[in-house]
Design a protein around this nucleic acid. Structure first.
Length: 821
RNA sequence: GCGAGGGUGGCGGAACUGGUAGACGCACUGGACUUAGGAUCCAGCGGGUUUCCCGUAGGGGUUCGAGUCCCCUCUCUCGCACCA
């Protein structure tokens, strides 16, 4: 009887030894090629979930594999430790956010260690520590100095549940990204980061990131939303003022018959003042503003508006255009005013139909001309200009340029570029975040905290109130200070920074996490950065990944780093699905990794999450699949344990008998395939190849005098190849067969191409493209021989009967196709 | 509507540049061992009218040959969405 496979015993034992020997610790080594492998750090919620297990298992395979291939691999882990849940816990359980956060970190660290991930724990960091956020405050000061951080009053997204402001990126379909509460607009003074200053570069570099998934880049491009057009002034009748509009369709300018303003547009009420329409306009504006954002921005919302009583003039035709306030015009985009061309814009068309406004066709498609009387929808395609004065007859694409030239010449308009991207609002009215290092002085105004006074430490002796509001503005010992300029009493900023600020640069801090002379040791960053491979969930496609790209460019322009982009390659792993839905508490379909570890061990949890699906795809949870992974590990366990004596013995030569040679060949083919597959992140097929080899080895049991050498070679290969996936059981078996080294320090096996070559090859024989028979022939067979043998085959003869050979196609070592007719 | 990615056995999934469709695993079936087996080992496992035919969402095309390339249609998932 062999000893049972007991993961609960061997896994912690090896974890202890690895840690004691500092196996995962790395330092800069200029003689070695570096590889920075990073998985998105977790929020310390208290326990890991299957998404973490999957994400970190993928990363760990790569880290171990690349290290065995001789690279110096940086593989760190830490905690995105500021954020709302800590405050919620404080409210609900009366526990301090700091205590709660640290307890959670301890619990999760233990879980990650129990999974056997090869992190260099010496580099662990938590963003809620002053040693971390003080450097973030420093960057804030530099950004303030350069005008990249600024304060402005604006309408912001307010989440009532979270009692704080949200950035545009954090609003999903009108709701808070975290709690799904509807957001409401609020006028507030807020701090912003000028991410729009980098809009062009962020967009341009989307084309310079070949290692990123196309869909993430597309999402970022859309988010930045660059569009080219012109700003045109429409003089207001009877006033010495004009309405400026932004349009990308200046080719339709001659067809603009009315004007639409956003309800928030300052001229909306202004123009109506003193006219009989004033009451109606005011009511409409009030009503629309009150309407919540989701309803207002839904597509099926009926287009509504109201006439202001005022007119403006089309600068090209001189026509009087009635000015309307319309519910579909957004103040946030362009100028908040839109020239309406009902014939060539669907929204304007619907609006014009409803209010009986004039339609003038200015672009005609070739073939059947449009008639404004009978049109049922706007024509938005290309065509030839009509009713457009000097531009008649031009194709509209060309007219765009010509009209833009004309407007610029006449001083009526100018070419501009619009972005959908807004500046990043980073003020949060929350306690559990990094303080913004700013002081307000009645005399001096906004005064940055001097560098020497950093960090502005978040006081830990405060209580979060039951109402959920931040205690900072109520705590004089925090906000009362003196002005660094004039020395008079002054007040500190009591808002904290968006937690996405911390995660925008943590990957740089990992290069030298304990460095206390600055953000990071320049030499360490120079050696390790940028991140070669980043792995995480698709849900950060815009938020975190866009902010991090922006931050890196800012740090570059400040001279801190020399690279343009933080993450050279990005892998976005799929979700973990059970019963057709994402695992979530509300669905009640959560599988707790702890349960898995207790029942099957960390190796099984890792193996299953890597084998069940390729990394990018969603992973369908299957209890039976987990059993299968566990069974395979047991199969390997028995294979080694039942042949321990043979494997412990001195390595024998690979025999010349057929069995040995076949196994020898299979071993080398497997090494080749597994190496290729891991390198391309095809872990599921890599694992299946090792399963095949294992099945083959089972087929030659028990080894005899002749096959011992090939057997030893095959089993050794299985253990090494499998070690990045299931490091504990392979380490245990490796030592049981008498090895002294750690598998992680073993070189990844090379394969012998000669040994992997098949002696006998199977050639498929087709007649007219249909499979008829197969030939097993020596690998060095010539085309003529294949042809001769194939033509002699009975099944081939039958299908050729009465026909003549037209053509014979030969794909060397693969296939022969005889075309007859 | 726009953009991206999918659709292959009962299921998860293989098939690199066009060249044996269904590797590997799960489920299922049969056999062996056994007092017993839900353990383990071995074998089978797309469908059918089974010397052959049909099969990669559907239809058409290119090719000696198409899951793979081209065109059209359907469908699913995700992201954005009145952006002027």
């Amino acid at each position: 009887m062999i000893p049972k496979y007991e993961p609960e015993v061997i896994e912690p034992a090896w974890q202890k030894r690895w840690e004691a020997d500092r196996l995962f610790h790395v330092t800069e080594d200029p003689t070695k090629k570096k590889f920075y492998l990073l998985e998105m750090f977790p929020y310390p919620s208290g326990k890991i979930h299957m998404g973490h297990v999957r994400n970190y298992s993928i990363g760990d395979v790569m880290a171990r594999f690349l290290r065995m291939r001789g690279l110096n691999v940086l593989h760190p882990m830490g905690w995105d430790a500021f954020g709302m849940p800590a405050e919620n816990a404080a409210i609900q359980h009366g526990i301090h956010p700091n205590v709660w956060t640290h307890q959670n970190i301890d619990a999760m660290r233990a879980q990650l260690k129990r999974m056997g991930f090869s992190y260099d724990w010496d580099r662990e960091l938590a963003t809620c520590e002053p040693e971390y956020y003080r450097w973030e405050q420093l960057i804030f000061l530099k950004m303030y100095e350069k005008g990249l951080a600024y304060k402005k009053k604006s309408t912001v997204n307010w989440c009532e549940t979270c009692q704080t402001v949200l950035a545009n990126e954090q609003v999903e379909a009108g709701k808070c990204w975290r709690c799904h509460q509807e957001v409401t607009p609020r006028e507030l003074e807020q701090w912003f980061f000028r991410i729009t200053a980098y809009a062009d570069e962020l967009l341009e570099y989307c084309d310079k990131l070949p290692g990123w998934p196309e869909r993430v880049l597309t999402m970022q491009r859309n988010w930045i939303g660059k569009s080219f057009g012109v700003e045109v002034d429409f003089p207001i009748k009877g006033r010495d003022e004009a309405i400026t509009v932004f349009t990308t369709r200046q080719d339709t300018l001659f067809g603009a018959t009315f004007m639409s303003l956003a309800p928030e547009h300052p001229l909306a009420l202004e123009l109506a003042k003193g006219t009989p329409q004033f009451g109606a306009v005011r009511d409409f504006v009030e009503r629309t503003k009150r309407q919540d954002k989701i309803v207002r921005s839904s597509e099926d919302l009926e287009k509504e508006g109201v006439f202001t009583g005022a007119y403006c003039l089309n600068p090209l035709t001189g026509w009087e255009m009635p000015i309307y306030v319309a519910n579909f015009v957004l103040m946030e985009y362009g100028t908040g005013a839109v020239m309406a061309v009902p014939t060539h814009d669907q929204r304007d068309f619907e609006f014009a139909k409803k209010y009986n406004l004039p339609l003038v066709v200015v672009i005609q498609p070739e073939g059947n001309p449009l008639d404004p009387e009978t049109m049922e929808a706007a024509y938005t395609e290309d065509g030839i200009l009509v009713n457009s004065g000097p531009f008649n007859g031009l194709p509209n694409r060309e007219a765009m340029e010509r009209i833009a030239d004309y407007l610029e010449e006449k001083g009526i308009g100018k070419r501009t570029v619009q972005y959908r991207l807004r500046d990043w609002g980073i003020s949060r009215q929350r306690y559990w975040g990094a303080p913004i290092p700013i002081i307000y002085c009645e005399t001096c105004g906004i005064v940055p905290v001097p560098e020497k006074d950093l960090p502005v430490v978040l006081p830990l002796d405060l209580k979060v109130g039951k109402d959920g509001q931040s205690p900072l503005p109520r705590d004089p010992s925090f906000y009362e200070t003196t002005c660094p300029k004039c020395g008079k009493p002054a007040r500190r900023e009591t808002d904290t920074m968006d937690t996405f600020v911390e995660s925008s640069w943590y990957y740089e801090r990992y290069a030298s996490p304990h460095y206390d002379q600055g953000l990071f040791d320049p030499e360490a960053v120079k050696y390790w950065l940028p991140v070669d491979q980043y792995i995480g969930g698709i849900e950060h496609a815009i938020l975190h990944l866009l902010y991090s790209r922006f931050y890196t460019k800012v740090l570059r322009d400040f001279g801190y780093v020399t690279f343009d982009e933080p993450f050279t390659n990005l892998l976005t792993q799929g979700m973990v699905i059970k019963d057709g839905a994402k695992m979530s508490k509300s669905k009640g379909n959560v599988v707790d990794p702890n349960y898995l570890i207790e029942k099957y061990g960390a190796d099984t949890a890792r193996l299953f999450s890597l084998f069940a699906a390729p990394p990018e795809r969603d992973l369908d949870w299957s209890d039976q699949g987990v059993e299968g992974s566990y069974r395979f590990i047991n199969r390997v366990w028995r294979l080694v344990m039942e042949n321990l004596e043979t494997l412990k013995g001195t390595p024998s030569q690979v025999g010349n008998d057929k069995t040995s040679q076949d196994l020898h060949r299979k071993t080398h083919q497997t090494i080749c395939k597994v190496t290729d597959d891991i390198a391309r992140y095809h872990f599921n097929t890599a694992i299946s190849a090792i399963m095949e080899l294992t099945n083959t080895v089972y087929g030659v049991l028990p080894p005899d005098a002749a096959t011992t050498g090939a057997f030893q070679e095959a089993v050794t290969a299985i253990l090494i190849l499998l070690s990045p996936f299931v490091p504990h059981v392979t380490e245990e078996l490796w030592h049981r067969i008498g090895r002294q080294t750690y598998l992680l320090n073993e070189p990844w096996p090379g394969f012998d191409a000669e040994a992997a070559r098949e002696e006998e090859i199977t050639i498929v024989v087709q007649v007219n493209g249909k499979l008829r028979d197969r030939l097993s022939l020596p690998a060095d067979v010539t085309e003529a021989e294949v042809k001769e043998k194939a033509l002699a085959l009975e099944k081939v003869q039958k299908h050729m009967k009465g026909k003549t050979i037209r053509k014979v196609i030969y794909v060397p070592k693969k296939l022969l196709n005889i075309v007859v007719g």
